[in-house]
Design a protein around this nucleic acid. Sequence first.
DNA 1: CTAACATTAAAACGAACGTTTGAACGATAA
DNA 2: TTATCGTTCAAACGTTCGTTTTAATGTTAG
Lengths: 251, 251
Amino acid sequence: MPDQKNNYDTRERILDVAERLFMENGYEGTSMRVVTSAAEVNLAAVNYHFGSKEALLCAVFRRRLGWLNGERLRALDVLEEQAGETSPKPSQILEAFFGTLLRMGEDQSLGGMTFLRLLGRTLTEPAGFIRTFFASEYAEVIARYKQALFRALPDVPKAEIVWRLHFMLGAMSYAIAGTDVLQVVTGCELGDLAGESSDVDADDDSALARRLSQRLMPFLLGGLRAPLSLTTPSLTASPASASDGDLQPEI
Amino acid sequence: MPDQKNNYDTRERILDVAERLFMENGYEGTSMRVVTSAAEVNLAAVNYHFGSKEALLCAVFRRRLGWLNGERLRALDVLEEQAGETSPKPSQILEAFFGTLLRMGEDQSLGGMTFLRLLGRTLTEPAGFIRTFFASEYAEVIARYKQALFRALPDVPKAEIVWRLHFMLGAMSYAIAGTDVLQVVTGCELGDLAGESSDVDADDDSALARRLSQRLMPFLLGGLRAPLSLTTPSLTASPASASDGDLQPEI
DNA sequence: CTAACATTAAAACGAACGTTTGAACGATAA
DNA sequence: TTATCGTTCAAACGTTCGTTTTAATGTTAG
């Protein structure tokens, strides 16, 4: 059995390199030989310290998700204590959940954008063991935030809230994972999207994370606040959709 | 050179099986031996008919994306002709872009939910040749729709529109790809989310696509319509975010 | 019939994969 | 010093990968 001595150096170097390479090439697309040679350790080091390639991926995530979801729970505790008998506002709940994650992207010691991108990409990875792992890692924090949103929006059907939580998670994950995938689709460079932002250096991950957060949070709030569709939106092409009348001209 | 005779049977069987297996196990996670044996064709058939595994994936997508993006361009043509000198409404533009895709999920002969899920997952796949392929396949339709939204929302900064288009693409892709990934995260079964919908059989892909569309379109519209954040949203945890005042109580 | 051709079939190719082995190394403690 | 134990190392394990090869199979046209 390992887990005792001065293996910290090798272990952490493997985790850092694996985090980056899994992000760049995917799990199946990253071989142990590439990981170990990039980390400048022996090929057998991963199996010695982690047991297997699957366990390595889980270790990469556990290192970050432990902190993240702990922080999320703590933030929600603070909000609910501040609110007393009442409930925190939906915007505060979203800020606690998504803002905590986006702030990780600004902190290099927490993995920075590398980890955020890896997380976004891995959530769609079909491998079974990954889904099982995420399900257990996320179970508590999702349950807590779902309940908080139910309380904060008592007049909205719970099913609708879950759907929109689902959509918000998707928008965030893609916004992060797709900074170089969908940017190709949208045909824009990062610099073109800076707008009137104060940070101008587009290569800085931290600045990117700040700009992303600045744009994403209003979008998520807008989606969460969208009026309920009481009728089925037109599936035939001809008439305009149901909630058309209240389209605000400013956006 | 191939491409002449009665290979339709083998070719199509390979495409159908590959579409499903790539969706279930990912590109790197699906071997040619599994594809060919599931399609009940010889191992060499893929290389004979398509040339390589990469070319097979591209062929799977070309078969669907050709129709999809053609339909999208046609729908936008109709809208702009109807609008005459004015511009189509943003909600109509979104309906043309996203509704066309979601309607594919209801039609088994167009790939149904299988193709939609594959598309959502592959957009985050890091392999270089896939990104190049998507960039060329999507270039025209994205450019047209971006221009249409610019015209429809002349007072909104173009950078903001591109960001929100990006977010909407993400929300949609995840909503589709994650029906069994993020459903685990949200801890809910599909049946629990049916709500007051008219279709009750949760196993029917077509019904799932309709329900998804019903929920997703209002969310996307709400996100697109969200007020611009003029100030940076609070990155410190303490005060509530900027656009808090106009949070509508009903959602 | 037979020559030409597109397709299928079985078998093998070399390369790369994740993992395991057993010896060597280096620090610590009796 | 010697024994112990965590760690590193080079080498090899057996398997699976995508692709290629060569021969057999039909089907079509002269």
